[in-house]
Amino acid sequence: MVVNAPDFIASLDGAAPAPGLSAPLRGLWWAAKGNWDQAHKIVQDDEGREAAWVHAYLHRVEGDLGNAGYWYRQAGQVAAKDSLEAEWQRIVATLLGSKT
């Protein structure tokens, strides 16, 4: 069971996301595994703000900053300016309710 960011990161050694993860966390899991299409498919059908944040991150990864900006606004987030890795870690920590 994934309960914090270190557990989530450790779960990346597996073949699939841990059971019970939210759609946004599953999207981040697939993004970390290099499967942008699977990650995008998961979050594009979720209308929540957390999914919109992950959606924004994914379009930033893709290099589509205009589309990313739209999704940051939908998420109520300021567009990220730091590294993709730092943003990924920040989203994971926030969604899991931890700081590490």
Rank of each mutant, 00 (worst) to 15 (best):
D64Y: 09
I91D: 05
G66N: 12
D45Y: 00
G66I: 07
L65R: 15
G69N: 15
T100H: 11
S22C: 07
G76C: 09
K41F: 06
E87M: 07
V54R: 01
I9K: 11
A31F: 03
V92L: 03
Q77A: 09
G69R: 13
Y57Q: 07
A39M: 09
D7T: 12
E62V: 04
G69L: 07
A18R: 02
L65V: 15
R73G: 10
G34T: 00
T94W: 00
K41I: 09
A51G: 09
Q38A: 15
L25D: 13
W30A: 11
R73Q: 14
A15M: 06
S22E: 08
W36V: 10
N67M: 02
R73D: 15
R26L: 01
V78A: 15
V2W: 06
G48Q: 05
Q38L: 08
V92A: 02
N4M: 07
L12D: 00
G14T: 10
A16K: 12
A31D: 10
D82L: 05
P24D: 11
M1Q: 14
L84T: 15
V54F: 00
G76F: 03
G14F: 02
L84G: 14
T94E: 12
K33P: 04
G69E: 14
R26C: 11
L96C: 07
D37S: 15
A56N: 07
Y72N: 09
A5R: 11
A16Y: 03
G20P: 06
V3H: 10
S11V: 06
A56T: 12
K99P: 01
